[in-house]
């Protein structure tokens, strides 16, 4: 049985130490008035196409294509309007995704291109994506459908404190397949799923392949809380992409951080093209 109650810390402990020290230092220095605005001259940065494409079974594909900008540019989102997006199904059939920007009411996320039919895929199948714009920029990627890994149990245990301090920790248990290089993302939302999760971390099975895993929290939840516990089974490229995004964000403002390049799952641009395989459970803590 493997426990990852503080897996995020466990996985990235040196980074965590660096963050703790770095952020504590930054806070202190800000308090001492040792920060100042400066002008910096950076090398020219050529914009790149950025894609976020999460395919799901039973859903019409909706993807987002934007453009990266120089860091100090205006904060206005750059949405190129001349990108042709083509999705290749496991059967080899190519289907054009229509440019029709909007907001997905289910997810609350913006998208730029949308398909016409819902997807039905089996684990092991592969999808392809191609983006092409009028400047000749071409972004390609492929996404393997991971097998679903199910949560065996979701359980919670209350402490023995008085009612006003009574809290529970939550554990989600699952068994990692015998195959190596499995990656997971664990999320817990309170009340609604289209808001920020209260728990969100990734784990990998490199230390304990093929065993039972328990992913959990501290004593954070009250009686009668409604929680949504989600376990994603990720493929390696998506896991590395998520890690690199986290590393890149942590490096800005941390003198002990190591800046990391974005490990995109696509070629010719930035971003991710993947197939989401997850299980979500709704529980009420009694």
């Amino acid at each position: 049985m493997r426990f990852f109650g503080m897996t995020r810390l466990l996985n990235t402990l040196p980074a965590s130490v660096r963050r703790v020290v770095g952020l504590a230092g930054v806070g202190l220095l800000a308090g001492c008035g040792l920060q100042q605005d400066i002008d910096v001259v950076l090398p020219a940065y050529p914009p790149q196409l950025v894609v976020e494409a999460y395919l799901e079974n039973g859903q019409v594909p909706r993807i987002t294509v934007t453009e990266s900008v120089a860091y100090l540019a205006e904060p206005t989102p750059q949405v190129p309007t001349d990108v042709t997006a083509t999705l290749t199904l496991p059967s080899g059939q190519r289907t054009l995704l229509k440019f029709a920007p909007g907001v997905d009411t289910r997810t609350g996320k913006a998208y730029t291109h949308v398909g016409t039919r819902t997807l039905a895929a089996q684990p092991g199948q592969t999808f392809g994506l191609e983006l092409l714009d009028t400047q000749g920029r071409r972004v390609t990627g492929s996404a393997l459908v991971p097998a679903q890994v199910l949560l065996d149990t979701v359980e919670w245990v209350f402490n023995d404190k008085p009612d006003d301090q009574r809290r529970a920790y939550v554990l989600g248990r699952f068994r990692d397949p015998a195959t190596p290089l499995d990656y997971y993302r664990f999320q817990i939302h309170r009340r609604r799923v289209n808001r920020d999760p209260e728990v969100d971390y990734t784990v990998e099975d490199r230390l304990s392949n093929g065993t039972e895993y328990s992913l959990g929290t501290g004593y954070d939840y009250k009686a009668n809380d409604t929680l949504f516990v989600t376990l994603y089974h990720l493929d390696r490229p998506y896991f590395l992409f998520l890690q690199s995004v986290q590393d890149a964000r942590n490096a800005n403002g941390n003198p002990f951080g190591q800046p990391s390049g974005i490990k995109s799952t696509v070629e010719g641009g930035l971003g991710v093209f993947t197939f989401l395989s997850y299980q979500r459970r709704r529980v009420m803590l009694k």
Partner: peptide, 12 residues
């Protein structure tokens, strides 16, 4: 960092 991009992530 020379550039940046907006990242929405999976919903939630």
């Amino acid at each position: 960092p020379l550039g940046r991009f907006g990242f929405q992530d999976v919903f939630g």
